[in-house]
Structure formats: structure tokens, C-alpha cells
Amino acid sequence: MSLFDLFSDYTLRNVALGAMVLGIVSGILGCFAVLRRQGLLGDALSHAALPGIAIAYLLTGSKAPIVLLLGAGIAGWVGTLTINRIVRDTRISEDSALGIVLSVFFGVGILLLTYIAKRNDANQAGLDRFLFGQAATLVATDVLTMSILGGLALGCLVLLYKEFKLLAFDPAFAASLGFAPNRLGILLTSLIVVAIVIGLQTVGVVLMAAMLVGPAVAARQWTHRLSVMLLLSGVFGAAAGIAGTMLSLGQQHVPTGPMIILSLTAIVAISLLFAPARGLVWAKLRQSHALNHEPRNREAQPVKGE
């Protein structure tokens, strides 16, 4: 497998392009989720999207990606509102609310998918590929759909960049300036739902969480500026997508989704350890250096908070 194959082989090109688009979109949108400390929202919403796929199929009988993904998007959105409602109106914590929506929606999805599977309906085969994703089945129209959806989401982000930035760093200030943080938050989450919808076919419900969190955490290590973080995060996501594709395709029995996630994990680990300013290795070295050489100055150094 070489980079050249990636551009000459039709299947390979589609898979790599799809994984790349997913990496860019989820990497960029994931930054906001991570900064707002909602890293697991994506996990909950990707599970919540599953019943939408089943219901869309039951209602229309169509397996066209756009129909199923629309269903997934609506279900994910209902999940968002449910989580919001539970957190706002009860004493149940956000963490529990995520768990509730995740497991119940997913349970409903599994119930419906198994119900569909046992109806002796020959047309249904393949609905379960959304569970684990099957990047290898991506065709050109899928990639086009993903690109358009992702482009729309990123376009929305560009238009509201200032507002979202404010929301991520200082929601109280945003509210005092007259923006509606609650509505902006829901809009931002809706964009994340779009990223999830894009990812379902490629990495599947379970691994989607990492696609949103991983690139952002890695990118955060290298910079203190949001704009740079967004770009880096998109690049890391895309790199993981392409690396995962190359590691998996052409070999038997190696699924693409998990390889993308494992590549991403490697990027995260390297960034956590070796990034110039925030890398853990350097921090450790600095610490022991300070202990060995400047014992008297140690207390004079200001504590640097993150």
C-alpha cells in the first residue's frame, strides 16, 4: 500500500476521501465540544442517532443514505433536546443525562433494527453497518453527501465564529452582550450532530466519540490560539482518517473504523507527550532540571496555571 495507490484506486480513493472529510469536519467541530467540556456529548448523540436510522427506514422503506442520515440527524437532535431538558429541569447531572439518552435511544435503535431484520424483508440487509461503520462500502455519492453536509456545517461555523468563540470561553459574557447562550449552544450541538451523521457510515456509532474528542485534545497541546487549534484539529482528523484507511485496506480482516481510531490515539499520545510547550515529557524534564540545579529559586517561580 502506498500513497500512490490512494489516488489511483477508485475504492481506496473514496474511502480515504470519506475518512478525510469526516476527520476535518469532526476535528474542527469537536474543538468546541472539548472546550465547552462536553467531550462525551458526541458519544451520547451518536448512539442516540441509531433509532432515527431504523425509523427512517420503517417509514420510507428506502435505504438511500440521505434519507437514513436525515433520520439519524433528527434522532440526534431530539437526543440533544432531551439531555438539555433533563439537565435544566431536574437535579440529575449532565453526566447521568448523557448516559440515560445514550443507552435508552440505543436500546430503542437495537430493538427496531432487530425487529426489521426479522421481518423477512430482503431489502433491509446492511442497516447494521451503522453500528461499527463500514468505510470500505463508501461510494462516490456517499463522499459527495458527506462533503456537502460537512461543508454546510463548517460554513455555519464560519458565519457564527465570533459568537461560538465567545460561547466557548465565556458564556456569561456572551449572555451579557445579548447573545442567547442556550440557543447558540443548541445550534452548536446541532452542527456536531451533522458531524456525527457524517461519521456513522465510516467509523460507526461507538467510535464516533473519539473522532470528536481526539483531534481537539491533540491540537490543544500545540497552541494557545483557537484559530490555530481549529486548523490543526482538522489536519489531525484528516491525517488519522487517511492513515487508518491505508493501514486497513488491502489487508484481510482489518476494519477501517478501528484503525482510524487507533491512528488517532497515536496522534493524541504523541501530542500529549511531546508537544513543545505543554508536552508531558518536557514538563517532567523541566521539573527534574529545576530540582537538580536551582533548588533555591524553586519557590520564587510563579505557579503556572492552565
Binding site: A209, L212, M259
Partner: peptide
């Protein structure tokens, strides 16, 4: 490490473990 929030830490660790598991099973 103070580099990662609690929820992001979860979001990195378990997909990695699950991906590793799925990889081993299918391979």
C-alpha cells in the same frame, strides 16, 4: 496531567480500547 478534561479523557480512552478490541477480534 491537567492537559485533558475528565470527560475528554473518557472520550479518548474507551474508543481506543474498543477499537483495539475490535481490531484484535476481526484480525
Amino acid at each position: 496531567t491537567q492537559r485533558v478534561g475528565g470527560e475528554s479523557a473518557i472520550g479518548i480512552v474507551f474508543p481506543a480500547m474498543f477499537a483495539l478490541g475490535t481490531f484484535l477480534v476481526s484480525k
